[in-house]
Design a protein around this nucleic acid. Sequence first.
DNA 1: CCCGGACATCGACATCTGTCAATATTGATC
DNA 2: GATCAATATTGACAGATGTCGATGTCCGGG
Lengths: 121, 121
Amino acid sequence: MSKSQLDLTPTESLACCSPLTREPLSAESATRIAPLLKALADPVRLRLLSMVASHVDGEACVCDLNDAFDLSQPTISHHLKQLHEAGLLHREKRGVWVYYRLQTEALRDLSALLGGVAETR
Amino acid sequence: MSKSQLDLTPTESLACCSPLTREPLSAESATRIAPLLKALADPVRLRLLSMVASHVDGEACVCDLNDAFDLSQPTISHHLKQLHEAGLLHREKRGVWVYYRLQTEALRDLSALLGGVAETR
DNA sequence: CCCGGACATCGACATCTGTCAATATTGATC
DNA sequence: GATCAATATTGACAGATGTCGATGTCCGGG
């Protein structure tokens, strides 16, 4: 089954959008972008993303992340899943461990959307 | 009553923060920033903000905004309130009308936080 | 001073979200 | 293959969120 325009992930469809302040966002764009922001709009997930992104080698094992919070392991797993499904974190299983890594384009595109910074090729 | 550090709006306290990907965000910073993102993380509010920001003269009257949506007037009012309380929109009443205007620093700071773009003074 | 229009607030409701304890799954090791 | 450790999934529940209709507030004009 090939990938039609309707199946584009939020991240994929973001690159083509004008900055928020340039012209009114279409309803469709807003609907595609909002989930990305929603994934980011939680203190725990913000910290998780930041911890992963700033970790050595650019990746972090779940075991590293669990201990940084006073939350149960399933809760952290749940938040990581949301970040992953939003397209913000890449996930890789190696042995018993799972490593997460920042999906850098996603964050870069989001920043461009908000800040109006043009292409940084 | 003077303004202590604890009363800083999310926007005010944002300027001092390192980009997300530089170092792990502190729990306190995350707690202050998340509400900003949460205010943005809704399709209707995204469009509202974008419409206000891209409107002529940089401001828009609520009456202009209401018609762009298939939502009740109270609902739009509710969303505008959230954007205002998050520090993303400035509000001014002139006569019978209320005008909203983008709080540009808020969006710029958010973009910098996500994108790691340094100061753009 | 009363009326009408612009906007906000209130109360209610269904849905979504964050959290946990319990349980399942998967892979390494003995 | 039995067991253990790392992570995910499930089910439950309290609290937050988006929406509406009804109502309140404020202002300008007759």
